[in-house]
Each structure stands twice: as C-alpha cells, then as structure tokens.
Amino acid sequence: MEQRPQAARLLGPAEVRGLAEQLGLRPTKKLGQNFVHDPNTVRRIVDTSEVGPEDVVLEVGPGIGSLTLALLSAAGSVTAVEVDSALAERLPGTVAEHAPALVDNLRVLCADALRLTAEEASAGNGPPTALVANLPYNVAVPVVLHLLAELPSLRHGLVMVQSEVADRMAAGPGGRSYGAPSAKSAWFASVRRAGAVSRNVFWPVPNVDSGLVAFTRREPPSEVPRDRVFAVVEAAFAQRRKTLRSALAGWAGSPARAEELLRAAGIDPAARGEQLSIAEFASVAAAAEQR
C-alpha cells in the first residue's frame, strides 16, 4: 500500500475534552454527539473499513475529528459532512495542528447528510468511493440509505451505529432483527456485522453499545424501480405479524388482489414479510406492474 506522507497524531481523551472546552461544546442527544476518544478504536475502524489511497472517503458527523485524522492517514482524501457549524469551522484547524501534511486532503461541508446531493458531495475531492462514519444513533439508517441512493459512486463503507441498529441493518430473512432497514440495505449492497464497540470509548458515555456495519455495493436484484419495491417492503413490515395477504391489502387494494400478486410472484400468501428476501419483494412489485 502506498505510504502517506505523514501519519496523523490521533486524539486522546484529554485532547477531545480540551477541544470541546475550547468550543464551549456540550454534546447533545439531539445531534447524537458522542465522540470517540480512544485512538486504538479509531485505528481499528479505519483498518476494518479497508480504505486506501485510491479512496475518496465521505465521513458523516466528524465532530471533533478523532476519526477524520485516522482516515486522512489512510485515504486519498476525506470529505467531512458536519451539521454543527462550530464543529465544521474548527475541524480544518484541528487537522492542521495534528496532521499538517494532510490538511489539503480534507474538505469540510457544513450540511445535513440527509439532504446531501451528489453534486455537493462530489465537488472538490470528486465523487466519494467509501463511506466511513460514526453515525448519530437516531438517523443512522436514513442517512445510509439516502447516501447509497444519492451516491452510486459509493462502492464500500463501514459505519458505527447502535448495536441493535447494526443487527437490523445486517440481518437476513427469517431472523427477529430482519425488517425494512435490512431489506432496503440489501437492495444496494451486501451488508455484514464487522465488530462491536464498547460504550466506554466515547465521551460522553452513551447508554448503549455500538456495532460496526460493513457494506459492499452490488447491483440491485431487479430492474423494477426502487421506490415501488420499497413500497412493498414498507407495507409488509408496517404490520409484520400479519400474513402478507393481509399486510399488503392496503398496498394492493384488497386482500384478494394481494393474494393474486403474491401467487404470481411465487410467494405463499400466508408467509410474513420477515421471510422474504429483497429479491422476493421485488418479484411482488414486478407482478403488480405486469398484472
């Protein structure tokens, strides 16, 4: 692997708290601000992400910059998206202090990742190829799904999310954790759990543990428009305890129509949504278009 010109000096607990004090920052639950203060955890995240000099990394919620510094040491460049204007303004200065040789490889956007466009994300460093982020727990799934949909250039990534959310994102059909987030994520990528992260490496300490979720982009399982497939997924899991014949009645127009479409797709109307793969959901959507 190509050697970076200089490895960044990573932030420890005292430096994280010191930067927060300089900024007058009181981390808020609303913004999901829990900052990693353990350098070994940060190194493990970057190693597990498998980003390299060829990657343009998109980092959502860089906060004080713990993960940003490690990413700059491994990737070709980093585009950091931060919704907190004070943190966004401070980040380049932190990188200049801890990794002066890498500061030109950083671009900071003060923006909401849920509204980020491909044009905004790609200006400067070019289209992002990898997503690596410590995501706020309350918006983790919507952010990942939005970015995968908006940025086809994203080929792989690793996100740190609440452990329970990690289970849901990576679950396969048939398990208790499998639901709409699992099925929708599978439309875009192969998703897997990639490790656990203790709550004790964060400041402030959250009430839950975290998990790492890795993904690798793949082609969608169907040519049916994504929004039509996702409408079936949402209907199926809105009433997940019901059979698909009942759960899809509102979407299809009636239970009888739902049964007709399910049978046309080769699916038992008595099955439940948690039993279907994303390819099978797409088959139901395709049957609706054809009949």
Rank of each mutant, 00 (worst) to 15 (best):
A140I: 15
A252K: 00
A111P: 09
D227L: 10
A271G: 06
V108G: 00
L248R: 04
A238Q: 13
A288Y: 06
P181G: 02
S246E: 06
P136W: 01
M169P: 12
A186C: 12
M1H: 06
P269A: 01
I278A: 03
A252L: 08
L72K: 12
V103G: 07
E97F: 00
P221F: 00
R168K: 13
T41G: 01
S222F: 13
R4V: 13
R107I: 12
R199S: 14
E119W: 03
D104N: 10
E280R: 15
E97V: 03
V141C: 11
P92L: 02
N125C: 14
R168T: 06
G124L: 15
A80T: 12
R9H: 06
E15Q: 14
G211S: 10
L276N: 11
V233G: 00
I278P: 10
Q239F: 13
R192S: 14
V159I: 12
A88K: 08
L262P: 03
K184S: 02
V143P: 11
A214E: 14
Q3T: 14
G211C: 10
K29G: 05
V197Q: 07
G157T: 03
A288R: 15
E120S: 09
A252E: 09
R199Y: 08
S210R: 04
V132N: 08
E97R: 06
A111C: 05
A75H: 02
L25E: 08
A252M: 03
H37C: 01
L10C: 08
H146R: 12
G211N: 09
G253N: 03
A279F: 04
A183Y: 00
P5S: 02
L58I: 03
G175T: 15
H146P: 13
D112R: 13
P27D: 11
L131C: 10
S210E: 00
P136M: 05
E89G: 05
E259Y: 01
S66I: 07
S277G: 15
A149H: 14
E164C: 13
A111M: 09
A170F: 10
R226C: 04
N134K: 12
